[in-house]
Design a protein around this nucleic acid. Structure first.
Lengths: 199, 199, 199, 199
DNA sequence: AATGAATGAGGGTTCATTCAT
DNA sequence: AATGAATGAACCCTCATTCAT
């Protein structure tokens, strides 16, 4: 078995040069700063980003041909975490425990990372990675819901996509006023209780 | 006849000339068209608005010095309707009935009129009118909540502003996916049930 | 007869303000300079034009929404002159005289004014004015050709559009080498002689 | 075995490595595709070219330090063919026959290969090869013209460079309208007849 | 009141070219 | 030789806003 041949050239786009990776990281950091940024604009202006990151515009475009691609790249880590949490919850046999936690975590993640909020709210993903993660998110949530539904803990008429949308709504509700920490627990509570089967 | 009175009675903004009123109406109509308009841009480009309404840009600025003012002017009618509904519900002695209706109505109004959604979500109103309406909205909602809370129908820890924010969240949830009619009833249901006191 | 009413509002886009007219003129002058310009680029960069003319970019776009519109505006005077000459030639009964003159004049005009060359070479006009002039050009040339053809002075198989295209070719031939004055007379000669019926 | 010879024989550009030759060929093919390519841009964007050819940009620059060099490299084959045809015509003793054929062929070649058109129209060649070919073209054409002039078949005042320029003009005339096949024969005819001595 | 010309910041994008690996 | 990351000037265009008429 030639375990030591230089690289696995299997359609894997080749390991990025280290300097390119560094640039990419700097760009992502700058973009995150900008997105959360003090202007509050939430915009992802490519030129501004280049300036902020101290690179030429072309470099931004080389790494992220589209703002959408950039956005998804920004959100992908948080999304991965979230998916991992969902899949962990899937493994849990006991009904009821997981969902509350997931909602709380998802809300917190959206508030922390606006890019995640944007990705969750966007109708469709551009990057294959993101799309795959969103699929896993849905599948995992559906599994959790199914389990809890079977235990009579969740309404019949709510599926994973409803949960995703309600999560977007939660983030918005929290964002629509002053105070970010205090209300979010209550709002999650409201939705959680609302997800139970009608008495 | 006081033909020579130098100015209008103080602070009362002289009744607008009929043609100015017509212009204003045309502007609002054009703006509404644009906001809902095709392209889904949702933007309120002043120049485009002027063109669409058949006036000069300057005229737009004369009527609406700020985009925020324009936005509030656009949303004010729907907001008035909503406030009226809330105040009607206030008059109703029977607990429990009004809130569901109000939520449904408010959600529908937001989906119909993006300007209302924006006004409800905005932290602060610029125009005195809007601010007053928002105050009345809060007062009315608080009254309704208080009544229902007293009847044990609503959680203790939710006030009018929470309801406003949750309404914004509802609009977002509906907007974050395909299908606008079907899910909205369910989502309102979820929130309504979630607003009840924990069992 | 109310001869003195302020203006004839007949779908005429209203007399431009004098200052706007001046700006427009400055823009056209700058554009002509640029087109002939030392960079030899022949480009019509809107930003560069704005800089050269000392106005903001927006102003350029206000006057000329498209580079094509600008180009046609640049060439329209020369085109009008040419059309006038053609139509004058049309009035001339004597066969044979006019065509030589027209070709010479058209070539000279193209060499003087690159915008005219571009307009003549372009497949289609964007502005109604230009299109109308091109139509008149064709009609006039066809009349001249018909007259001369009837007198046995011009080949049967050549029409106005062929003449237009050959004129573009002449301009190119002159431009494809050093010396602009001397060869052009000869080249026109060649084409003129070539347009006669084969012996 | 001279394993240690420091460099290739002076000024003779060492026979290219076979893989380099292949790369070069791929680049030329890709460039030709681009130049004729859809979008009709006719541009020779180096980056796009590299992508299309599946090499890095650097490689493009290694092979063709300038766009001009690339252009000449692209056109050189067609130019060689043309020169060969001219020199064959030179060998022909009979006056009159060759020129018509050469013009037709040259026009066709330009329409087929935009790079040839560009090279013929360009004031000066950058590459020695191209320059040499252009010299041979001129010499050959002059020989043909001289022969035909002696036979009274060609005007006195036209030389090889005029023919080159008229050829550029022909290509332009053909290109300045719809229909590429039909008019070109006629246009060549016009020029051919125009090149005869005035009657 | 109304007009619309002018402004110019700013965001989007492309592309020739250089250079470290 | 080859690579491709990085650069940044230059263009494109939109739009909020001001101001003289």
């Amino acid at each position: 078995m030639p375990e030591d041949r230089p690289a696995a050239p299997l359609a894997r786009p080749r390991p990025p040069r280290p300097d390119a990776a560094a640039t990419r990281a700097r760009l992502l950091a700058a973009a995150a700063r900008q997105l959360a940024g003090p202007g509050g604009s939430g915009g992802l202006a490519m030129n501004a980003l280049a300036r902020e990151a101290g690179v030429g515009v072309g470099t931004v475009y080389r790494h992220f041909p589209t703002q959408q691609v950039l956005l998804e790249a920004l959100g992908v880590d948080a999304l991965e975490d979230l998916v991992a949490a969902v899949e962990r919850a899937t493994g849990d046999e006991r009904p009821g425990g997981g969902l509350a936690d997931l909602l709380r975590r998802a809300l917190r993640a959206q508030l922390t990372d606006p890019a995640l909020a944007a990705v969750l709210a966007a109708p469709t993903a551009t990057c294959a990675d993101t799309a795959a993660l969103l699929d896993r998110l849905r599948a995992g949530l559906d599994a959790v819901l199914e389990r809890d539904r079977a235990a009579g803990l969740v309404r019949e008429d709510v599926d994973a996509d409803d949960v995703r949308r309600l999560l977007c709504g939660l983030a918005r509700a929290v964002g629509a006023g002053p105070g970010r920490a205090s209300p979010s627990a209550r709002y999650v509570d409201v939705v959680l209780q609302g997800l139970r089967p009608a008495p």
